[in-house]
Simulated scan of single mutants.
Amino acid sequence: MSIRPVVVVGDVGLDVITRPSGEIQWHSDTPSAVALVPGGAGGNSASWLAGLGASVTLVARIGSDAAGSTCRHELEAAGVTCAFAVDPTLPTCMVVILLDAHGDRTMFPDRGANKAFSVGDVDLASLGLPAEPRPHLHLSGYVLFDAGSRAAGLESLRQARALGWSTSVDPQSPALIEREGADTFLSWVAGVDLLLPNENEVAALGGMRAILEHTHEVVATYGAAGARWVGVGVDETAEAPFVDNVDATGCGDAFNAGLLSAWLRGENRSAALRAGVSAGSAAAARVGARPA
């Protein structure tokens, strides 16, 4: 059975991934391995979805610069349809990522053109997707957390509901949830079919029960402990295989793609969880947030 079409709304940019060779020598020099790779939560999930066989369109905003052209070329080569607005002033997003010895990351994002993503950039009906099979909208929470792009993120959810599409949202950041407040974030995502937080985001949102008062179902990830799908009469879990965590960047984006590709193909929740864990584990085992 084919996968229902997916529209991803989220950030696109480049990641500068830095892996120090040892303890960081602050105010001096630390030899490091540095890689410049495509990134952005929206671009990551879209690439993984395309790699898993989905027909996927990415709605985003890039700069009118070489970085934006690079991002578009890489995504189109991966099979993603790019419905991009081009900002004449702001640069394409750039994120500096610092990896520790365990592959866990600290990020320093400059969202660039992503923060100017506007309501005028969102017209889901114009994408030309058929009513059947019913499309699905996946939204990255970063769009909601930036005051400049929030209205566009909320508009994408509104349009998807009006068109009868299913919806999912990844909260993306416990720190940003705490900054805005759990009640505020949950009001933004009220009524979505799937919320896709990690364990820290679940805690920041007040736990599963609080989340389920606003969303239909929740799929939470727990790193090496696997994942859990919870809803009314639903409580499924999946274990994670052991992997050498090289780079945690984008593991959640890959998980989302794996889970959605299976679920939108009509597989049951248990199979979808396993597919999500498999994709997330594959992402953890390599540097960068995109499929090999």
Rank of each mutant, 00 (worst) to 15 (best):
Gly258Asn: 01
Asp253Cys: 10
Ala262Gly: 05
Gly258Ser: 12
Phe242Lys: 14
Leu195His: 05
Ala248Phe: 07
Leu273Ile: 13
Glu180Ala: 13
Cys251Val: 11
Gly191Ala: 02
Gly223Val: 12
Leu186Cys: 02
Val246Gly: 05
Leu260Asn: 04
Arg228Leu: 09
Asn268Cys: 11
Arg179Leu: 13
Leu195Arg: 01
Arg158Asn: 03
Leu259Phe: 15
Ala225Ile: 04
Leu163Glu: 06
Gly226Asn: 06
Val189Asn: 00
Gly223Ser: 05
Val232Glu: 15
Ala275Trp: 08
Ala210Gly: 03
Ile177Cys: 12
Val192Asn: 05
Ala182Val: 11
Gly231Gln: 04
Ala151Phe: 04
Arg161Asn: 08
Ala152Pro: 09
Phe242Cys: 11
Gly233Val: 15
Trp263Lys: 15
Leu194Asp: 00
Glu267Pro: 12
Arg265Gly: 15
Ala160Ser: 07
Met208Tyr: 09
Ser156Gly: 13
Thr249Leu: 09
Ala204Glu: 04
Ser156Val: 12
Arg158Pro: 01
Gly153Val: 04
Trp229Gln: 03
Ser156Asn: 01
Ala160Phe: 03
Thr237His: 15
Val230Trp: 03
Glu267Trp: 03
Leu196Gly: 05
Thr221Asp: 07
Ala257Asp: 06
Val230Gly: 00
Ala257Pro: 09
Gln159Trp: 06
Ala224Phe: 01
Gly164Phe: 03
Gly153Lys: 10
Pro197Glu: 07
Asn200Ala: 14
Val219Gly: 01
Ser270Asp: 15
Pro174Tyr: 04
Thr249Tyr: 05
